[in-house]
Design a binder for these strands. Structure first.
Lengths: 224, 224
DNA sequence: AATTAATTTTAGATTTGTCTAAATTAAAAT
DNA sequence: ATTTTAATTTAGACAAATCTAAAATTAATT
């Protein structure tokens, strides 16, 4: 068991940015990272070399790069810290979900592992942050999102629309009108036994009603 | 009302160190600061010039220096943050009083004022940190310590020995034996009505008993 | 396939905070 | 009142992270 090396805030920010970017299409470019971190491509190249030297990144110049296993591990710990602090700010200090990101960007760089594990315990080992994103556990693992249709989504669980069953123009028109699209974050607030219709709540606090027929055709993923 | 300038962690550490050092004898030297911050006198001189340029310090080379009002104000906000976080770590996350300092050294540099005011509220506006030091309020003011003899110190209040009434060799021998000296932190855990004797607890958890006669002659200060 | 365009990398400079070694000033001791 | 000692400051260098401008490489287009 070797002592955990401490990385600079800048290093941590690069790891986090690359981690997020390579989740999407799998491929990340120098320009992507520069854009994400509000910096210049030349600065990114400089840092890529440093990350490679620290064995956090696999990198061949002009040929692309991706995080090493160690790099991913570190990135996941930063993400864990970010999301736990966001949860703390919303649940304990009564911040709004939209004002916590910036503060968590600072808090995520506090290094004590003991602190973050105690905080996790204090918060009751939450599985999702206030935006519905999964919180990695102490080992960097997070719950594999569960896929269900909206009828089977438990009440008050934030979920993300992942696919649509019936893709007819009529259905898409209805979904478009209600504000439901792939990636939309929704929560079921009420289920009416009478006709199995549902009331959904969005992140912007607005509420819409959908029928059982629609609900059956909207698949979402969420973390238990 | 101008926007609060943000200072680097290093700048904040210098302000805090100088603040603490000038509390003692009033005079701070370059060497004192270098020693306190585990750095070199030349580095201190470099920073003194920067602090002066930012109007945080009054400084004439070779002639000494002290914090400006603005410098004091900033230092007090750092100290406020440090002590509130320490309180949080001990009270909410069950850390021991002896393991929180290092973590608070990092947390004190988180910049959000709203965060710290919310934290203060969440903690119930505590007046003392786990070491018994006063926590400055949102405006940088802290309660003027109240002076009383040990007989009149409320139970469970951490206080600091500030002066001794009877300074006879016999008294000083007794106090030396019990482990009571100027600056010692004590807490009254029990008062016996029978003979007005007291049980005192020290920071190292040990407990001693003293008589009414002794208690009357030991003056302490504490924050209400 | 050759040329143009876009991306990526290098070269050299800048800022912040630090350092060592040498020079300066102030304080202490003879 | 000198001289010696200690404290402080300057000069010049360095590491980290950034920048601009120019060069190198890859991708796209004709």
């Amino acid at each position: 068991m070797s002592a955990a090396p401490k990385y600079s805030s800048s290093t941590e920010n690069y790891l986090k940015a690359i981690f997020h970017l390579q989740k999407n299409d799998g491929v990340v470019t120098t320009n992507d990272v520069a854009n994400e971190l509000q910096t210049r491509p030349a600065s990114v190249t400089d840092m890529l070399k440093k990350l490679k030297a620290q064995k956090l990144l696999l990198y061949e110049k002009y040929k692309g790069f991706k995080l090493s296993n160690e790099g991913k591990k570190v990135a996941l710990q930063i993400i864990r810290k970010h999301r736990l602090w966001e949860f703390f700010l919303v649940e304990k200090l009564n911040f709004g979900w939209d004002e916590v990101h910036e503060i968590a960007e600072e808090l995520e760089h506090i290094s004590s592992k003991k602190l973050i594990d105690r905080l996790d315990e204090f918060l009751g080992f939450p599985k999702q942050d206030p935006h519905g994103d999964p919180i990695p556990d102490s080992n960097g693992k997070f719950t594999v999102p569960k896929q269900v249709d909206l009828l089977n989504l438990p009440v008050n669980k934030i979920a993300e629309v992942s696919s649509i069953g019936d893709q007819s123009p009529e259905m898409l028109e209805l979904l478009g009108h209600k504000g439901i699209a792939l990636g939309t974050r929704v929560e079921v607030k009420k289920k009416f036994a009478f006709d199995n219709s549902l009331e959904l709540k969005f992140k912007n606090q607005s509420i819409v009603t959908i029928s059982e027929h629609v609900a059956k055709n909207v698949y979402v993923k969420y973390d238990e």
